[in-house]
Amino acid sequence: NPTATLTTLLRGSTIEDHEEVLKAANAVLKSSKSNPDALHTRVVALLQLDRFDDALRALDDGGDKLGEACRLEKAYALYKTGKLAEAENLLQGADKRGLKHVAAQVAYRAEKFEDAARLYKELGSEPVAIEGEENDLRINSSAVDAQ
């Protein structure tokens, strides 16, 4: 049962074998090609495997609904492939912390340092969500301020 296999993998305490997860997602999609979790999982597995162009293709193939569910993943793949204008467009009005981090990194890479500084100021004024995030914020804010 491919769906049960995928569910079990995703419930595991740690996920290290992203090829295995990708295979499990593809197995689900073979019989259920619009399964939202399997589509989302495939995109994340491709990002984990540094296959950013394949992730963008998977997102395009998945349609608007997948694009909405995977806004962070799409923005991140665009950022990693240097499609900064497209990423910026997608990140307009970013409200979640993950999206704000991508937006700040896009702004930094595009040398829009005022935008990056504003985003890091916002992120710094709100509660952190991840262990080590305060340190990341401090380092990245310093990099922006050094420009």
């Binding site: 995703l10 950022y79 991508v102 990194q105 995030e133 380092i139 990245n140």
Partner: peptide, 21 residues
């Protein structure tokens, strides 16, 4: 070139394991 971290990466997670909903 100053140090700059890929902080956004930590937010990428599989469905059901998201850092934030």
């Amino acid at each position: 070139k100053p140090l700059f971290f890929d902080a956004a990466w930590n937010y990428i997670e599989y469905p059901g394991r998201e850092v934030e909903k």
